[in-house]
Design a protein around this nucleic acid. Sequence first.
DNA 1: TGCAAAATTGAACGCCGTTCAATTATCTTT
DNA 2: AAAGATAATTGAACGGCGTTCAATTTTGCA
Lengths: 203, 203
Amino acid sequence: MGIAERKERDKVELKSRILDAARALFLEEGFHKTSMRSIADRIEYSPGILYHYFKDKNEIFHALHIEGFAELGRRMQVLSAVSNPIERLKAMGRIYIGYAIENPDMYDLMFIMQAPLDALPDKSNWDEGENVFNGLRLTISACMKAGHFKDHELESLSFMVWSVVHGMVSLNIRQRCHVLACPDPNQCVDDAYGAFVQIIDRM
Amino acid sequence: MGIAERKERDKVELKSRILDAARALFLEEGFHKTSMRSIADRIEYSPGILYHYFKDKNEIFHALHIEGFAELGRRMQVLSAVSNPIERLKAMGRIYIGYAIENPDMYDLMFIMQAPLDALPDKSNWDEGENVFNGLRLTISACMKAGHFKDHELESLSFMVWSVVHGMVSLNIRQRCHVLACPDPNQCVDDAYGAFVQIIDRM
DNA sequence: TGCAAAATTGAACGCCGTTCAATTATCTTT
DNA sequence: AAAGATAATTGAACGGCGTTCAATTTTGCA
């Protein structure tokens, strides 16, 4: 039955063409201008077709947000080469921040917007986020086993570390950093992360 | 000219009735369900009237976001009674977090959403945010004068501290905290802030 | 070739923010 | 008190949105 297989290939192909169009529009024009109609326009199909491949708009953006996590995970892989857990933790932060600064819209989709989460069957099952946070948890756990962060609790400390980096980049992405004296947003984040690293180094 | 004054009063009154309706809808139903039509419905006027009192929807939400900052500022006033700068800094964080947890939608509007900023004539003039950040800056500056945070730079450290608390509450508000072991969001934030305070206390 | 099944369409529904000519209400002047 | 001017208010209309679904076209098979 080669035909059924070819049909399956066609379906997969159109699905990925839809995602290509959605991704391009999202990165070029932003979330609001990426409408179901504009996606359909770009692939030269009628709007209705999108609903045979995705339940709704949220599901399309959920798929895109998974791509973002795949890329972030890829970047995190270099960390396996860093054996010192404290160095690994610091490098992890730099990678996280680097991804956010280089892909602000993707970061926004992954960690700020509601859309991708609304496509989740069960809200407490955000696997993509869980993977990233687990990486952080493991690294901080290794730091503690190596004698750092005495008198701290793993979970709270992990969440606090995540909060520092998320706070910095999300304040930037959502335009709240004009209150800072430093005019260059990237510089602000680098400096503030530097201050955080300095603190970590003394723990 | 009592008539002109009464007319002025009427204008102000209707304007605040519009804001009352917008505020109520926003807090009851969220941003998306607070449409110009639903606001107009609630005050029993036609939709067009809103545009004689506000330039657009963003301006309405800008006005609401100012109310939020007024309340946050009011809460911050108790800090003048805390003379020890480190204690003041720690209390400031608790007030900030408390406001965010008790008014998640308002916090979202003030520090996450784009709408209120899009009503700003000049994006770099976000006075409300600047006031809050200045309070933080001054307190940290006092801490440094008292001998804390040696080898740290005021601006970077202030931004980092802001990032910690903003990160914690915004990850909560935008539903990214289900990855945490602790099931109660408030508890997570309290514990993570506790970890941060513990670090500050040793600096 | 004809028929069932699958893929695709595009009009329609009920929303949205915004605009503006037309209408109504109010104040001023005679 | 009437008429005219001014201000306040209306509501229909525009173009857009996400989504649905009967109708149509395309495809695979007997």
